[in-house]
């Protein structure tokens, strides 16, 4: 079940012709043995957005990102990243990826890690000054051992390397996991600065909505391997309401819960009720059972 809204240009920056999406999945499926990790995933992240890929642990976020980077091959469906098929070209040039755990060579010094990244990107784009500048701005010494860095330091180095590739698209798998609040702020700040400066599209996954809700203007909600929501945050919030009352309201109810004598329902529509928070929206769709969303009177 998925609710896909108008993927408009509201809230997007920049003028000019509407470009193709940065990341486009169409009916993508991926199985591991007997288990289905991704099922019929369809979504599109337009260029220039900062998109949050949200879902509980095990929802398939990492699998999805690995399919987008060519590390895994989809069993079905079409994948398009910056116009290329990662199953054919491998890592799409112009994209950068930072995996969970921010894998780096632990015994290397930071200086050597940057040199390694330069060597591995000799055939592509590599902006050594940018990467070094980002490391310096993070206050990390070039002679420090990568393995001895704090989780925040590792994240900054991994991000510096990802941005050294001068990417049009930045894919980050749980970049804020295990970081203290200050480091979280700094890492997000660095990511968003790249977006502000170069218009880099960002797709970052998180299982904590609060971490990303101020930063992201696009949401892809993944639950149980399926895409539950895909759209600009502004649009999604504007087109849902939270209605509290004694009984379940009519109309397109996504999910309702009863506590005592009150029923609180998340409803698709633009009428009565409070606009939902992003948390309301996400929790509502994750908890909605399949087929629960009424099709009657569905606004387009």
């Amino acid at each position: 079940m998925r609710w896909s809204l108008m993927r408009g240009r509201v809230g997007s920056r920049g003028v000019g012709p509407v470009p193709e999406g940065a990341v486009r999945f169409d009916g993508v499926g991926k199985r591991f043995g007997g288990r289905s990790a991704l099922r019929d995933c369809t979504f599109e992240v337009p260029r220039g957005r900062v998109a949050a890929l949200v879902g509980p642990n095990g929802a398939g976020k990492t699998t999805l990102l690995m399919v987008a980077t060519g590390l895994l091959r989809a069993d079905e469906g079409r994948v398009e990243v910056l116009g290329a098929d990662p199953a054919r070209v491998g890592m799409p040039p112009g994209a950068s990826f930072v995996a969970q755990d921010k894998p780096l060579y632990g015994t290397f010094r930071v200086r050597e890690m940057l040199r390694a990244a330069a060597a591995l990107n000799a055939r592509g784009r590599w902006d050594a000054a940018r990467a070094a500048g980002l490391v310096e701005a993070a206050g990390i010494g070039f002679d420090e051992r990568v393995g001895a860095l704090s989780p925040g330091g590792r994240a900054r180095v991994a991000l510096a390397i990802a941005l050294g590739r001068d990417p049009e698209l930045l894919l980050l798998d749980e970049p804020l996991a295990e970081l203290d609040p200050l480091a979280r702020r700094q890492v997000m700040g660095a990511v968003l600065a790249a977006s502000a400066e170069s218009g880099t599209t960002v797709v970052l996954s998180s299982h904590v909505i609060a971490d990303v809700e101020d930063a992201c203007d696009h949401l892809v909600l993944l639950g149980g391997g399926r895409v539950r929501l895909d759209g600009a945050v502004e649009d999604l919030l504007a087109q849902h309401r939270v209605i509290t009352g004694a009984t379940e309201p009519d109309g397109a109810v996504v999910h309702s819960s009863r506590s005592g004598r009150q029923v609180e329902a998340l409803v698709r529509g633009t009428g009565d009720g409070e606009p939902p928070t992003l948390d309301d929206l996400v929790m509502g769709y994750l908890q909605a059972e399949d087929g629960r969303v009424a099709a009657a009177g569905a606004p387009s």
């Binding site: 809230g11 920056r13 700040g189 968003l192 600065a193 977006s195």
Partner: peptide, 19 residues
């Protein structure tokens, strides 16, 4: 302040600053 400077410090979406 530039959008870049603002988001670097506050970690909000650049669109918000531009808006």
């Amino acid at each position: 302040p530039t959008a870049k400077a603002v988001v670097e410090e506050t970690a909000i979406n650049p669109n918000t600053v531009l808006k």
